[in-house]
Design a protein around this nucleic acid. Sequence first.
DNA 1: AGTTAACCGAGACGGTACGTCGGGTCTTCGT
DNA 2: ACGAAGACCCGACGTACCGTCTCGGTTAACT
Lengths: 195, 195, 195, 195
Amino acid sequence: MATPNPERRSERARQAILDAALELCLKHTYGGLTMEGIAKRAGVGKQTIYRWWPSKAAILLEALQERGGSTLIFPDTGNLKADLRAQMNQVVTAFTDPTFAAYSGGLIAAAQSDPDIAAAVVASIIKPRVDLCVERLQKAQQAGELRPDVNLPDLVELLYAPLYYRLLLHTRPVSKSQVTTILDLALNGATADKN
Amino acid sequence: MATPNPERRSERARQAILDAALELCLKHTYGGLTMEGIAKRAGVGKQTIYRWWPSKAAILLEALQERGGSTLIFPDTGNLKADLRAQMNQVVTAFTDPTFAAYSGGLIAAAQSDPDIAAAVVASIIKPRVDLCVERLQKAQQAGELRPDVNLPDLVELLYAPLYYRLLLHTRPVSKSQVTTILDLALNGATADKN
Amino acid sequence: MATPNPERRSERARQAILDAALELCLKHTYGGLTMEGIAKRAGVGKQTIYRWWPSKAAILLEALQERGGSTLIFPDTGNLKADLRAQMNQVVTAFTDPTFAAYSGGLIAAAQSDPDIAAAVVASIIKPRVDLCVERLQKAQQAGELRPDVNLPDLVELLYAPLYYRLLLHTRPVSKSQVTTILDLALNGATADKN
Amino acid sequence: MATPNPERRSERARQAILDAALELCLKHTYGGLTMEGIAKRAGVGKQTIYRWWPSKAAILLEALQERGGSTLIFPDTGNLKADLRAQMNQVVTAFTDPTFAAYSGGLIAAAQSDPDIAAAVVASIIKPRVDLCVERLQKAQQAGELRPDVNLPDLVELLYAPLYYRLLLHTRPVSKSQVTTILDLALNGATADKN
DNA sequence: AGTTAACCGAGACGGTACGTCGGGTCTTCGT
DNA sequence: ACGAAGACCCGACGTACCGTCTCGGTTAACT
């Protein structure tokens, strides 16, 4: 993720830093996360951190990718709606997990003022999942289940955005019933049938 | 917004602080905003700030409510889709405005680690606008333009969430064409007509 | 002691301030004495203090003069050495009293950086006592008990300076045995008799 | 003088701080001395000062010991009175020097409310000089020039106390003629010869 | 096997901002 | 007009972290 290295890098230090970052993030929330705190907790010199990561967000991001090995598999049972619901419910579960919430917020908050973080979050977390979803939708579209003129990334956005909306704006808690609502509206539309 | 007072409060200081906060937020971005900087720029003692506001986010929020007296009127031409598009386009315009972007991000970022801020943002910014939209949708629903079983706040969420999604996740820029897509999908649904 | 007044001055406030100053000085030592603290304790506005006194040292000084109405009588029994000893012992007693020590130090400390305080301390505390002592010595000198060429203020200085020396430099505690030593040396001289 | 360290300490910073403290003390008097001012003038972080010194008085004290390498030699010409006069005149010169006066007062003032400072002042400044003087007096006493029953530290006190008395109480300026007077009285006594 | 180069731990360094305290001035009441 | 109350501007306090910079010490890898 950064600059100076060969592979003389100490794996022990790297792991200790990632661990420390996650633990402290849970304990003090993202805002209370400190380079100095991480260094002390990890039993590591501050320099060692700065050598390999440009910011604490970068550390967290790497920790997430390595630890939070959440499933990158999209179900395909043939039933589009069921598959979507299954996948979205999984996201709801993640969003609900306090462990996850601890840095989700922090990371996205950090992204607001650091374009590099924003890009990294998208590239390493959002994009792969969106792509998988698009793939699944593509099959459905080819099968005639979806209107052929629908732009699939836009549809993905419509499906997942409300989850992020609640996560980040804290209007209402994210929930599985929300998923049902979203699927109904997004797939069937809100307008009354014109027969 | 806070504790110690009568109304001996200096309106001059209050205005100077709000001004300074907004100006500095534009110049240095939310992250570079500083209590000390605001105090200096406003020609005010730090104590005076701490006396009346618990955090810089609170200052910004108050500044927004007072200054950013953005339109709280929802158009009603009789044409639901056109009205929604008009309103959503207005939001897109706001989100695109660099002035706005400066604190939008910052404020929402701050909300991630401070529930008070989160609640205040929702109450003073999000909620009123959502309510207006719900009202407009209610008329449409009563007119038979929307399915009677649709939960309106959920629909509002579906419509606006994708805008916030792009604003906060920086996947793609918010745009008016996005509004068209959202409206098409949310109103008509993504599934192929089953005739 | 200060500037703006007629005699509309509130005696109640004046007393309350002097009381508060003395009490707080005992509780927190001179260094911890605060205009704000005095005001609060005295139930008085800060302005009222600033109107009548230029500094907290001035308050303490006035309090001392008014309250610490310590004896300004110099004994005259006919026995010079006994009279000096009696008077000096009284000073030792005062210096030893923790009540006194509380501000003695503080006041003299303040005098180091404020010539006005220094002058006031000398004029209102030191000078009167020195004068009394000089008077007593004068009688002795006229009676032939002291060398006629001795400058009496200088002698007074020699007698009392060692007490202040210990008080301010904290080398050894002030004590009555010290008085005996001083009197012996100052009156008889340190040199061996030349017979 | 303090706590956290090995000898990773920066000598450059230490010197800069001592210099800055002395310079500022002369410019603004002891009372106007500021940790922040010293830090800025020395081009040093405040933390670096707090790391190594507990108070500004401690800084000044260290500066004095290091810079004010004033003579610690007591003359011994065989003529006791002349030697004492020479040494005491030297003290008068020091007390008269505005450079010295700047912190002398400040330091002793600080000692009034901080026993640690008091002890340090005595140990590092007063004590060594008193000891030297005692040594010289000892020789004189053994040579029969002084009464054998005279307690030498007490005599030293009697000789020097009047100088401190004037320095700290600002009754009259310290002067060399004062030395003459002191020596006459302390050595010969004030009483008329009883022959 | 000895040298050398890099990373490692530790933590001091020059800084910026924090949130608090108290100074002295001012303004607004009430008496 | 003075007194109480306390908000105001300001400057300093002592602390927390920042990101940079030495310091040994411990491994490699390369003569």
